[in-house]
């Protein structure tokens, strides 16, 4: 309850802050809409040349694309600004102010800035998902769709955890730029169906760097016959990565040398 009240405070402060740069507020909305347009346009053009990709037709691919757009929008709204600023807080020693507060520092630093401009995009992303589901030729069922949305939330949590694991080495390296830039490059692997990964690339992108799991597995569980192994793997990976983030965060705090770092 205390954390819920705290999060409502974060929302209030973030709402005020987001209107500080009004033109940028508008540009960011346009930027994210362009990202959605490019994602949908790419798959539309691809399917002009092939009836299926990795076993999915164009309708299934639209649901998958809408799924990863929603995951991206949730990340941009809830986590992205916070993770962007974290390396600077560590390097300048500004983390001290947050460690002294009587709440979980990981909770505080991961969630304190809520991006209201991206929240508008999350609504657009939700609209794209609704369109993709409504135009899907087979009946999906309300319960399946609710389950799919819950899995997308799990995919968002996993995306946050992987992003965090690319940021946290800053406690030791004191330079977050290379890994952050590498993270944005490897996110491309989330934007393609997981079945394109075979052999060692499958192990890499569904276990070690699970980008192939985040949006593909929820889409498979929605549109294909139920496979408990897929659900179990998805849940296990989300849980392991969440615990890993907590472990690395604690190890990072032990290595943190405050203002002199």
């Amino acid at each position: 309850m205390r954390y819920l009240r705290l999060y409502l405070c974060f929302l209030r402060f973030s709402a005020g802050k987001s209107m500080e740069f009004r033109v940028d507020f508008f540009f960011r909305i346009v930027m994210d809409l362009a990202y959605y347009g490019v994602a949908l346009g790419f798959f539309h053009l691809l399917y002009l040349h092939t009836p299926t990709v990795a076993g999915w037709d164009v309708h299934q691919a639209r649901v998958f694309v809408a799924g990863y757009i929603v995951i991206d929008a949730i990340h941009m709204t809830v986590f992205s600004n916070n993770l962007w600023i974290l390396p600077s807080l560590v390097n300048k020693g500004d983390l001290d102010y947050y460690l002294a507060r009587p709440v979980s520092s990981l909770f505080f630093l991961s969630l304190r800035d809520f991006a209201f401009n991206s929240f508008l995009n999350l609504i657009f992303a939700g609209g794209i998902l609704a369109w993709a589901l409504a135009s899907y030729p087979a009946p999906l069922g309300a319960a399946s769709i609710v389950f799919f949305l819950l899995l997308l939330l799990g995919g968002s949590l996993l995306y946050f955890c992987v992003h965090m694991l690319f940021v946290l080495p800053v406690f030791w390296t004191h330079s977050g730029q290379v890994l952050t830039s590498l993270f944005y490059n490897v996110t491309r692997f989330m934007e393609r169906p997981d079945r394109i990964y075979r052999g060692w690339t499958r192990l890499l992108f569904t276990v070690l760097l699970p980008f192939g799991v985040m949006a593909s597995f929820p889409a498979r569980l929605l549109m294909e016959p139920f496979d408990p192994w897929i659900l179990a793997q998805f849940a296990a990976i989300v849980a392991v990565f969440f615990l890993l983030v907590i472990g690395v965060w604690r190890a990072g705090l032990r290595a943190y040398s405050s203002a002199s770092s």
């Binding site: 033109v23 346009v30 930027m31």
Partner: peptide, 19 residues
């Protein structure tokens, strides 16, 4: 000169250009 921050506009340009 008129807007406060154009970072997202530059990202938008690169994204559109790439596609």
């Amino acid at each position: 000169f008129w807007a406060d921050n154009v970072w997202s506009l530059m990202v938008l340009l690169k994204m559109v250009l790439h596609f």
